[in-house]
Amino acid sequence: MQRVLLTGVAAQLPWLMACTHDSKDKADASLKLTWKQAILDQLIPADQYGPGAVDFLADKYIDWYLQDELIDPSDRDYVANGFKKFEDQFDTKQFESMNASERETIIRKTYETSWGKSWLSRIMTLSFEAMLTHPIYNGNPERIGWKWLDHTPGQPEPSQKIMYPNIFSTINES
């Protein structure tokens, strides 16, 4: 048992240390987030259990997703429109300056709307992709998501040539 747990503890160390930081530092860091990052941070925060959505670069990953022309535009619009609705419904500047508990109230309110319920679920899934994808997709930097969850990636790992969407042209050229 110890051998299994040791790996887990080792992977958590930076986050355990982060938790010893002054809570004011954490609050300051949180105030530097954009409102989009703050939504994601509320869903998957950096906390005593491990890194959070901002550490996984979930916001940048979602931007990449929204620009992927191979994805059905209606799927991308759905995600983008959710951010727009959030912007319409709440003062995003104010949201950026809120503390975690105030932000939680807003997220709960969002979840209570018919659009917010499924939209939050959708961006949660995209955040999981950012957290646990191969780092070649610009999420999961330095494999922090995998390390956090003691995940062993499969081999071989993707290269530039066979990653999505490059694999399509690679296949056609071969």
Partner: peptide, 19 residues
């Protein structure tokens, strides 16, 4: 479908199940 050869396969979840 396309001709995907052994060297094109990797354990990339994005390719295999997310897209």
């Amino acid at each position: 479908g396309p001709w995907i050869k052994t060297e094109h396969f990797s354990k990339d979840e994005m390719v295999a199940t997310r897209r």
